[in-house]
């Protein structure tokens, strides 16, 4: 068992079965954006139970995520999935919505809650509030820098989960504009959001998954693992909910090797790691908001080690 946790997200049973998860310690099951997402675990209690069973058989920690923006009419479904997660022995549930957190705390107090990135956690005071509702792990809002996260951690002493690599969630909507293209493209929901669709304006790019907007660039923190470990972080996410099984496997392999090396105090990066990360990054790489800059910026600390990374990303002087 490693001293840190590398986890990711998988939306449905098909994707779970097709994924080689050897380098992950834990998996979140479900798509947080849309109830119509293809065979979404969050709509299929039977699939969810099977998914949890598959993960347990592989020795993985099995988590269930929840919808990020439910309205009244969604709540019975959310309740059902929390119940299924609890009865099937999920190790934790990820929660992005404060009302859902309240339901989970009141009705399924045995389920540890991980706070997701859309819960808008910006302050240590927020951590304290959510802790009282059963939250044991916290994804700070993606806009926070590592310095700000360190301040929160110093204040509350509770574990944070950080996005280490992948497309950063930027927004969630009630409306799927991809449905406008069903007739024009001859592709129906739920296949529409399986396409690789990017919104671009000059050198800005964002990925659309229908009701969700993700960063176009992949957040990449492979150069900063020693710092993250030194600052006490142990829970790391590779966001792959909208990616292929190949992406899921190959990116995890890079980070598993890099984290193992960083854990022993060795910061050296292999050339093939950067080749793999770049090959899977359609638009380029960025550091998110970790260094207090615009989310799409990339501030490599070792450009020599990462070859052409700086050439594919906009860098602010």
């Amino acid at each position: 068992m490693s001293t840190y946790e590398l986890n990711t997200t998988i939306a449905n049973l098909r994707d779970l079965r097709e994924s080689d998860l050897r380098d992950y310690d834990a998996i979140y099951l479900g798509d947080i954006y849309c109830r119509l997402y293809e065979a979404n675990f969050l709509e299929r209690p039977g699939d969810l139970k099977e998914g949890l069973s598959i993960l347990r058989d592989q020795g993985k920690r099995a988590y269930v995520t929840t919808y990020a923006g439910p309205r009244n009419e969604f709540l019975p479904k959310v309740h059902k999935m929390l119940e299924a997660a609890a009865t099937a022995g999920a190790d934790a549930v990820e929660i992005h919505n404060l009302g859902v957190l309240r339901i989970a705390h009141e009705e399924f107090p045995q389920l540890p809650a991980h706070i997701g990135g859309f819960a808008n956690l910006y302050t240590a005071a927020g951590v304290e509030v959510l802790r009282q509702y059963g939250a044991v792990r916290f994804t700070p809002n993606y806009e926070l820098s590592l310095d700000e996260i360190a301040e929160i951690t110093a204040d509350c002493g509770l574990p944070m989960e950080l996005l280490l690599h992948g497309k950063m969630p930027l927004g969630i909507s009630d409306y799927c504009f991809l449905l406008e293209y069903e007739e024009k493209w001859g592709v129906k929901c739920p296949d529409l959001c399986q396409k690789e669709l990017f919104l671009k304006q000059g050198d800005w790019a964002m990925k659309t998954v229908g009701k969700g907007i993700l960063s176009g660039k992949d957040v990449c923190m492979v150069e900063h693992l020693s710092r993250l470990l030194a600052e006490g972080h142990r829970y790391f996410r590779i966001e792959t909910v909208s990616e292929t099984p190949d992406y899921r496997r190959e990116i995890a392999a890079v980070y598993r090797a890099a984290l193992d090396r960083a854990s022993s105090g060795d910061d050296a990066l292999e050339a093939e790691w950067s080749e793999t990360l770049l090959r899977h990054a359609r638009i380029g790489l960025c550091n998110g908001f970790y260094f207090g800059r615009s989310g799409m910026d990339y501030a490599g600390i070792r450009p020599d080690a990462m070859g052409s990374l700086l050439t594919v990303s906009r860098v602010e002087s």
Binding site: N120, N141, E143, L170, G171, M206, R293, G295, M296
Partner: peptide, 11 residues
């Protein structure tokens, strides 16, 4: 309350 698009482009 669920939007980080502007800061992704420029913060």
């Amino acid at each position: 309350g669920k939007c980080s698009m502007p800061s992704y482009v420029h913060l």
